[in-house]
Computed example of a mutant assay.
Amino acid sequence: MVNYKFLILAIFGTLFITYASSIPDITIVSSNDSLDSLVSNLAHVPVFACLSFFWFKAFHGSMLWHRKTFFVLIGLFLFSLSDEFHQSMVPGRTASFSDIILDFIGIILGFFAFRIFDRINRIYKLV
């Protein structure tokens, strides 16, 4: 069974990341280049954690646990790779291996957040 609310959030999040990657030379903090670099790099972790959580929640209960985990983790990792490749072709943007690592950390954190939320949900029947 697919959770369409989270599927819409997951698709929107994926499209938003793709759109944000298309903006040439995006700056978050204009006064300090090193601070801007730190903020934009660290933003990868929570963004991909939320995206991972949304994708796991969207397909919760729709397929075998191991299959779902494999498809979401590999799919998001491949999306991260394609996003960095896409950024390399945008004027003023560059691809970075560290961004891929930060994306993967976010994906794993989203996976663990989903697991914790799912366990609490099963114990207390919250949602």
Rank of each mutant, 00 (worst) to 15 (best):
N3F: 08
R93N: 05
H86P: 00
G75F: 01
M89S: 15
I108S: 04
F79L: 15
L64Y: 14
A20Q: 09
P46T: 00
I8M: 14
P46D: 00
S34A: 15
F85M: 06
L7R: 11
S88G: 09
I120V: 10
L78T: 00
N121E: 10
F6L: 15
T69V: 08
F70H: 09
V127N: 11
A43Y: 00
F48R: 01
A20G: 06
R93M: 04
F16I: 13
L9I: 12
L109A: 08
D118I: 01
R93A: 06
V47P: 03
V127I: 09
Q87T: 11
C50I: 12
F114D: 14
I74S: 06
F70I: 14
L51H: 02
F48W: 00
V127S: 07
A58R: 07
P46H: 00
A113C: 11
V39A: 00
L9E: 08
A113V: 13
F111K: 09
S21N: 07
S21C: 04
Y124L: 13
C50W: 04
R115Y: 07
I116C: 09
L42S: 14
I101P: 02
N41T: 13
L9P: 02
A20T: 07
F77V: 01
Y4F: 13
G92H: 08
V90P: 01
H60V: 11
I26W: 07
A10L: 12
R122Y: 12
L7Y: 12
R93I: 03
F112T: 13
F117T: 12
V39H: 02
G13Y: 03
L35P: 03
K125F: 09
F104E: 04
Y19H: 05
A58I: 05
I123V: 07
L109W: 10
Y124R: 05
Y4D: 00
V39W: 02
V47H: 01
K5E: 09
G61V: 06
V2S: 05
E84I: 07
L51Y: 05
S31F: 13
G61L: 08
R119I: 11
N41E: 06
F6A: 12
I26N: 08
S88Q: 04
W65L: 08
V2I: 11
R119W: 13
I105G: 01
K5Y: 13
